[in-house]
Simulated assay, not measured.
Amino acid sequence: MTAVFARPAARTRFPYRTVSWLTPVAVLALWEILARTGLLPKQVLPAPSSVLAKAADLIADGELPSNLLASLQRSATGFVIGAILGLGAGLLVGLSKVAEALLDRSIQMVRAVPFLAILPLVIVWFGIGEAGKIFLIALGTAVPLYLTTVLGIRQIDPKLLEMTHIVGLGRAARIRWVVLPGALPSILGGLRLSLTAAWLALVIAETLGADAGLGFMATNAREFLQTDVIVLVVLIYAAIGILCDLVTRLLERRLLRWHPTYARLTA
């Protein structure tokens, strides 16, 4: 007698991506309900619909676009400078023991200093102009990217490097075909951290007597107890942070298609 086995039911994939977006939507809906019913006072946390209405007013009179553009220009300038410095220093230290001896200890000391601790010194150095703000953003960007670049290079399998010596690859070719691809996952992870740090640094930088920017809007709103404007600025920071994270994830998918771990995750 032949045993008949039932075919196992196909596994259904859990909609992780859908749930990840539904959760914040549910939070916003609950927030709206609590605000509309008066359980959340308007002075404490206005309803999302009220915040959107305020955003429409600020867009109509041009205040929000101009301040958003000012913040984006600061963060982009500081991020580019910091990314170049952080990546360059990370490559030097990761590839050279001499560079490590010269740079790493000092960079680790700078990393341990909080932003707020160096704020008075930045004011003394640069005043309250744009240079001090860009310096803070560049510093916040450079350190995470430096650390992850060095870590990525040091985590490369020594056997791969030994193989490059056996096949006779020169130093430039070894860096191009082995070191950089091997460190790329860590570098891209550092890029995500640097984007986050750049926005955190921007918030602090725009307290340095800024006359434009999202931080300037929030500071003015605090003076006049405009909670809806403060909440709007916070939501804009969150939205830009999510957008930056999505961009870096797309870069990971495109640049790391060859990597077995990432290929499996995106399959």
Rank of each mutant, 00 (worst) to 15 (best):
P120M: 05
Q155P: 13
A117H: 05
K159S: 09
L136G: 02
L121Q: 07
A172F: 13
E130V: 03
I107A: 11
L151V: 07
L119I: 08
L121T: 12
I156M: 05
Y146M: 12
I166F: 10
F135R: 03
M163A: 13
V150E: 12
F135M: 04
I137C: 02
D157N: 12
L116F: 13
L136A: 03
G129Y: 01
V167H: 11
A172R: 05
I153F: 13
K97L: 12
L161K: 06
K97V: 09
S96Y: 08
W125Q: 03
V167N: 07
G127K: 04
A112W: 13
D104S: 09
T164R: 03
G170H: 07
A112F: 11
G132L: 02
I134R: 06
S106N: 15
G152C: 11
L136P: 02
V143T: 04
I134V: 14
A99V: 07
K97M: 10
P120S: 05
R111S: 06
R174C: 01
A173F: 00
V113C: 11
G170R: 05
R111F: 10
I153G: 09
G129S: 00
A117G: 01
K159W: 00
L136M: 04
Y146T: 11
P114Y: 08
L145I: 14
P158F: 07
L136Q: 01
P144W: 11
R105I: 13
V150R: 10
L103F: 15
L161W: 00
V150W: 10
A117R: 04
R171K: 08
V113F: 12
F115Y: 13
L160F: 12
R174V: 00
G132D: 02
G152H: 09
D157W: 10
E162W: 05
W125G: 05
R174M: 08
I153V: 14
L102N: 13
G127M: 06
L119G: 03
L160Q: 10
V150I: 12
H165V: 06
A142E: 03
I134H: 04
L103D: 11
A117F: 05
L102V: 15
P120W: 07
G127W: 07
W125F: 12
L160V: 05
V150N: 11
